[in-house]
């Protein structure tokens, strides 16, 4: 199985030198779903941003390779990289309330890039947008194309963003906590929708979440991230049977679905945290040498 996206030894640092991502390697196989789990602030979003070229200005990639469709995109010129990413990858963002441009109608927000970047004709782009809006189960797509974001609910907006992400048939989609900002009732539907769309379009999906319960439902493989370091990389089945890293095991024990739902949860113990912090320090020591 060849990886469609392969990140090799990626280190991202703050301009001061503080590492944000530590020697991260992970693979997303074509047509499969790779989960990226870790607590808030672990650096999950930064991995996605490094791939898509949207890292904040304060952060720089100091070492590493990002292979996308057989090309190390870090070796490309910025304009080439941008175009390449725009053509074969897409993002499903975290917060649908802020990810649509408030001053533009929905239609152009989906179709403009198809016309501008990919050179489709306007009619084809519009037809494609309508088709996808129907596919993400938006009632009356023709009307919705003419509305502004503020007229739609969060769930509807996330469906639109999903449709928009799939519009150009990208080979890789990065979904950054795509259900976190939604109502609990809507979360399940959106999760199911993303999973269905991924299967139907056989897209590689990097699924970022802090929720192991969600991972178990949609992913084939996963990486556990702690303080910017991948502490475990595993196939789903093996991971849930037998997590290797103590932090992974503790994380699993702290997830309601996998312990007795009625019973009490075990928080990640200070001992485990101490151990993993130690590991990070050792890594940084080695990196400095």
């Amino acid at each position: 199985m060849t990886a469609y996206l392969s990140i090799r030894n990626l280190t991202v640092t703050l301009t001061g030198g503080t590492p944000i991502l530590r020697n991260v390697s992970l693979d997303v196989v074509a047509g499969q779903v790779h989960g990226l789990v870790g607590e808030s602030g672990a650096g999950k979003s930064m991995i996605g941003k490094a791939v898509l070229g949207t890292l904040p200005r304060a952060l720089t990639i100091s070492t590493g390779e990002i292979w996308l469709d057989g090309v190390n995109i870090l070796t490309l010129k910025p304009s080439q990289r941008r175009q390449r990413i725009g053509a074969i990858a897409a993002l499903i963002p975290q917060d649908p309330l802020t990810a649509l441009n408030p001053s533009k109608r929905i239609g152009p927000q989906i179709t403009r890039r198809l016309v501008d970047i990919l050179g489709w004709s306007k009619q084809v782009a519009t037809a494609r947008a309508l088709e996808l809006l129907a596919e993400v189960q938006i009632p009356d797509p023709v009307r919705v194309m003419r509305t502004y974001p503020h007229e739609l609910s969060g769930g509807m907006r996330q469906r639109i963003l999903i449709a928009s992400a799939f519009a150009a048939e990208p080979k890789l989609i990065i979904a950054d906590e795509p259900t976190t900002a939604l109502d609990v009732t809507v979360q399940k539907q959106i999760l199911r929708l993303i999973s269905d769309m991924q299967t139907r379009h056989s897209t590689a999906l990097l699924f970022v979440t802090h929720d192991l319960g969600v991972v178990s439902k949609v992913c084939d493989t996963l990486s556990v991230l702690y303080a910017g370091k991948v502490v475990e990389d595993a196939r789903m089945h093996r991971f849930f049977m037998r997590p290797i890293h103590p932090y992974s095991a503790a994380l699993l024990a702290a997830t309601p679905t996998y312990t007795d739902p009625t019973g009490s949860l075990t928080p990640v113990s200070p001992k485990v945290i101490k151990a993993v912090e130690q590991e990070i320090q050792e890594h940084d020591m080695r990196a400095r040498q």
Binding site: T54, R82, I85, A90, P93, A99
Partner: peptide, 23 residues
């Protein structure tokens, strides 16, 4: 966020500014 999203779509920095941010 919508500006960042536009960036991932392949728009140049100039286009991102005039099309997404300016209005």
């Amino acid at each position: 966020d919508y500006v960042t999203l536009a960036r991932t779509k392949g728009y140049s920095e100039g286009k991102v500014i005039t099309r997404e941010a300016l209005p």
